[in-house]
Design a protein around this nucleic acid. Structure first.
Lengths: 233, 233
DNA sequence: GTCCATTTGTACGCTTATGTACCGACCTGA
DNA sequence: TCAGGTCGGTACATAAGCGTACAAATGGAC
């Protein structure tokens, strides 16, 4: 481990040195390979992850074997909200969608540090509020908006967390996130492609008109983004 | 105000006297009339409400003038999670669905008490986790389950909070909660009625076969209920 | 008892998305 | 260079839910 780890997680960046430095000894840099599961439904959560690069999806597995995404976490947040809130486990699964890296911390150490430092606690709780709004909007969005709108929203949200216009995603994976058929994604991708907003090849979607994509997306993208800005800046 | 207010909110009941008594002076008993709004999107939240009886819906208003429910709060919880998490406001609206009563507290006093008492904080955070799971499952449910399943889930969840098998609800209101057409609700109610699970007349739905309704509902009802039990008992 | 607003039942054509299936395109590694 | 797996495009019949409209039933106010 280097003497000082470079920090790109925005929660940690927001901390003054006096609040950040005591945490440093607990951090273990880890890479986040594609499709890795960071926490499994119903099992005890061992670590929290402050995402540095890449993107992690919160997904809900369903009894019929399908799954659907309910939230997204990038370098603006951390994986392990249940630990902060006092739960040992959660029915949700955290799965790496876009490969990257994170700073990992033992759940027990995390719990201890947080209860000791109220500034840290306050910051993390504001993040929980932002995530809560994101999940709430997902509920609304899944109920009321069309697939192309939701796809546009998803791509924009992912882009903000991936910090790249090129996203390594197959239609198959997108269909799991959006909770629809793979063939349905192909059609929706087709409409955005025809509109000149994105390009795609095998396992890769590229955003070429961010503005246009925002217009094609439902209001949910903007609402959630504004809420993150409001709460975490 | 009576010398001691009788407490039926389950969060407050779970507190030992030493943690509850300091809160008592802050409580103002209020009634929750049907359709009252407890907090409006985007406006500063003045009070938190520990629900004693009745049920409050968290709804997301959308740009097209419709709305959809993302969460439900009864005597197992409180209205005002954003205050606990450090936000002044939220895009969600809290609206009384089933009339009842609550203990109201100034947001500022609430914030102060909570930061001072870690037992109280820990309890309320576990509730936030349970609510978070409920909202997450709503997102999944809205994306993947059929209307009769979702209606059954909704009725069961409402029943648990109303503590009565007779719910004062019109199809119109149910359609707002479920984010579907009023006529769609009528059809879905019809299928549950034909199956002998519920009865309904003007502005009233009565559950007559709770077990059967649970079988007709999707897994989401059970998942969420189990999570509440796990976290709050 | 009568009136009237609210609530409920039902119908119609239409849109969105489903489930399944098949084939071609692309990419990697031997 | 070729083989084999993954990924993407398309098709077809079907189902779920929509938007709209209209009429019947209900029940509280007078």
């Amino acid at each position: 481990m280097p003497a000082t780890i470079s920090i790109s997680n925005r929660l940690l960046v927001a901390l003054a040195a006096e609040n950040l430095d005591p945490l440093r000894p607990h951090f273990q840099p880890v890479s986040l390979p594609h499709k890795q599961t960071l926490s499994k439904p119903g099992t005890s959560i061992e670590h929290v992850y402050f995402v540095q690069q890449g993107m992690v999806s919160l997904v809900q597995p369903l009894e019929n074997g399908t799954m659907i995404e309910v939230g997204m976490i990038g370098n603006e947040g951390f994986v392990g909200v249940p630990v902060l809130l006092g739960a040992e486990s959660s029915p949700l699964e955290a799965m790496v969608q876009i490969p990257g890296s994170a700073l990992r911390m033992q759940a027990s150490a995390f719990r201890e540090e947080v209860t000791r430092r109220s500034t840290l606690l306050a910051l993390l709780l504001r993040y929980v509020q932002a995530l809560h709004i994101q999940v709430s909007l997902s509920a609304a969005c899944n109920g009321r908006h069309t697939l192309p709108e939701r796809l546009a929203r998803w791509l924009l949200t992912a882009r903000d967390r991936a910090t790249s216009d090129e996203l390594p995603l197959s239609h198959e994976f997108l269909s799991m996130m959006l909770g629809v058929r793979r063939a349905g994604v192909t059609v929706a991708v087709g409409t955005l492609k025809t509109a000149g907003l994105i390009r795609n090849s095998h396992g890769r979607v590229t955003i070429i008109d961010r503005q246009g994509l925002e217009a094609a997306s439902c209001e949910c993208y903007r609402t959630v983004r504004n809420e993150y800005e409001r709460l975490l800046s």
